[in-house]
């Protein structure tokens, strides 16, 4: 049981960590100041949530590993984030499209987790869901604004949706770890969130005048750790550099 819970917590924490790191790459580069601040704040929330999820993962594992140990001292094959969050930022529109696709899922997942039978999971979810409500409002509004914007922004948002949609399916795949979580009442079956997610996407993409691809092919392998994209290694190279170069450095 605790091995499955550890796995589940790594999946939650690694999604936040890798997306938080990706979004932080925009710091100082966003098209306008307000967006720069908004992206940095979103990244900050995600990194804060990472500390809670991975902190609990280390506690559950019981080997004395801290959130920092898990973030900075594991290699690519031990990461359990979905592939969607490790994809490169692309342009601003692509970054916000990825953010919306993730936020819409995270809001549903966290809402369900507020009812978790594991109180430590429920309290993290209760905290994080309030932050994510702001994320999804903003990313959804931006997808609508850019999708239903100029011909150029519309074309870029449609291209971003076509590129990223094949990575959505992995958020809803279910395996033995998920079944163990369902059985213990800790977490919902990811598949059970799909209908509400589809409804949210249909509403936002409709307003954004964007067309959801018909094909539901899904790239997978991140959350099970079977295979990440080449991009994860590059993120870790930068993110873990200090701890690799100066093991145990602290301040």
């Amino acid at each position: 049981m605790s091995a499955d819970l550890f796995e589940f917590l790594c999946r939650m924490g690694d999604n936040c960590l890798i997306l938080g790191h990706r979004v932080s790459e925009w710091c100082g580069h966003a098209p306008v100041l307000e967006e720069d601040i908004a992206l940095a704040n979103t990244a900050l929330d995600l990194i804060g949530q990472t500390q809670l999820w991975l902190g609990l993962a280390g506690e559950v594992e019981g080997k004395g590993r801290s959130a920092d140990d898990l973030a900075f001292l594991r290699d690519a094959w031990d990461f359990r984030n979905v592939l969607l969050v490790e994809l490169p930022n692309g342009d601003f529109g692509q970054t916000l499209m990825r953010q919306f696709l993730f936020d819409a899922w995270q809001e549903l997942m966290l809402s369900a987790l507020t009812q978790s039978s594991e109180p430590r999971v429920a309290e993290i979810a209760q905290k994080a869901v309030k932050e994510v409500a702001y994320h999804v409002e903003r990313s959804g509004d931006t997808v609508i604004g850019l999708g239903d914007g100029s011909a150029e922004s519309h074309a870029r948002m449609q291209a971003a949706l076509d590129l990223l949609y094949p990575y959505v399916g992995e958020l809803f795949e279910s395996d033995a770890v998920d079944q163990a979580m369902v059985k213990a009442g800790i977490a919902p079956d990811p598949e059970s969130l799909r209908a509400a997610y589809d409804a949210k996407l249909a509403q936002v993409m409709g307003e954004a005048t964007l067309t959801l691809p018909d094909d539901r092919f899904a790239h997978k392998g991140g959350r099970t750790g079977r295979m990440h994209t080449e991009h994860l290694g590059h993120i870790l190279t930068e993110m873990q550099w200090l701890q690799r170069a100066y093991p145990g450095a602290s301040w």
Binding site: E34, I37, A38, N41, Y134
Partner: peptide
């Protein structure tokens, strides 16, 4: 102006 501001708890 923006839902986010100079600190996580503020909007502009």
């Amino acid at each position: 102006i923006s839902q986010f501001g100079s600190t996580p708890c503020k909007a502009q």
